[in-house]
């Protein structure tokens, strides 16, 4: 056997094995999680404060100019009156869903209780959608960390829909010229000095806008209070002088969701029932993008490996075509 070829094959096999890496060192291929931007803006959603009024859903629809949604099977009993989207979709960027159990007697209790949960983009610190988009249509602001979408760039491959661990980006399947819809944290309102519509209208301060660092402090402060104590819950933007909403501190789950999940999110959740019951899945601390980008960057770093492979292939192909008279 040709020595060169053997050497090449050994090298290629080694490169491949080294690139894809032994099983246990799969973690080693990960790159580091990305870090929270310096002026990261976010939201603290407190499920125990939410009364399920859906003012945020209405305000969101108005602010973002998306229509009322009525799935075909709910249109019968609800002729043109209520928005009855079942989840976020191409026409609903934000919705309130409900967890129920048994007799649904008491709010924020997992046994025979119920709880509301707001659903929209969590603005991940290390977002999968930004990592997977082939045409940079998903962008994360370097300063505020808000994840926005540029429909002019988007080719509609829907990899972001497929890849988002929260199922947030949604494609408008019922449109001839559909586009990807997702919460962009009312970036257009923020440019005018306003705050996201949902936080603006929330009557109880369940959706609270602010800097992620401040919101995290607020969340921890709530957790440190004694249940039953009166507490002044801020409304609108944390730090503004809006009237507060005074209520008793509920029985919180001791976990602030979004601090570590998939490398952290800029929307944080407090709740009275375990977060998984509210459709917020248990997720690892490592961002999902860190593995796929880690592998991809290892394999294609500076295109060295593919070019080396190409070099070998060129050599071998040239040899073979010379040998075969009828090479093609």
């Amino acid at each position: 056997m040709d020595k060169n070829r053997r050497r090449f094959l050994q090298g290629a096999a080694g490169a491949l094995a080294g690139a894809v890496a032994p099983v246990e060192s799969a973690q080693a291929l990960r790159r580091e999680n990305k870090q929270l931007p310096p002026n990261a803006l976010g939201m603290l959603y407190d499920s125990t404060l939410c009364i399920g009024c859906r003012a945020c859903v209405t305000a969101c629809k108005e602010a973002n100019d998306v229509p009322v949604e009525q799935p075909a099977h709910l249109r019968e009993w609800n002729v043109g009156v209520w928005d009855s989207g079942e989840d976020i979709s191409g026409k609903t960027l934000n919705t309130i869903r409900v967890f129920t159990h048994g007799t649904k007697e008491q709010k924020d209790r997992s046994e025979n209780g119920y709880a509301f949960i707001k659903r929209h983009c969590l603005h991940c610190v290390d977002p999968s959608c930004v990592s997977v988009c082939p045409v940079s249509a998903m962008l994360k602001d370097a300063d505020t960390g808000i994840v926005t979408h540029n429909p002019d760039a988007c080719i509609g491959c829907r990899y972001c829909v497929y890849g988002c661990p929260f199922g947030v980006p949604q494609y408008q399947f019922d449109e001839t010229f559909g586009k990807i819809a997702k919460c962009q944290f009312c970036e257009h309102l923020q440019k005018k000095g306003q705050i996201p519509a949902c936080c603006d209208v929330c009557p109880t301060g369940a959706s609270l806008f602010g800097l992620v660092a401040d919101l995290q402090k607020e969340a921890e402060q709530r957790l440190s209070q004694k249940p039953g104590d009166r507490y002044e819950f801020p409304r609108g933007r944390l730090g503004d002088d809006r009237p507060t909403h005074e209520a008793a501190i509920p029985e919180y789950q001791s976990h602030v969701y979004g601090v570590k999940e998939v490398g952290g999110t800029q929307i944080r959740y407090l709740a009275g029932v375990p977060h998984e019951k509210l459709g917020l899945p248990k997720l690892p601390d490592e961002s999902y993008a860190s593995l796929s980008e880690g592998v991809q960057h290892t394999l294609y770093k500076g295109m060295i490996a593919p070019l080396a492979l190409l070099g070998g292939l060129l050599y071998l192909a040239r040899r073979s075509t010379k040998q075969h008279e009828d090479g093609e």
Binding site: G52, S84, G85, E86, D87, F99, T100, K107, K277, L278
Partner: peptide, 13 residues
């Protein structure tokens, strides 16, 4: 808000 149960029209998680 004291309701006997959450509104039925709300989507379940």
């Amino acid at each position: 808000v004291k309701t006997f149960s959450p509104p039925t029209a709300f989507p379940a998680v």
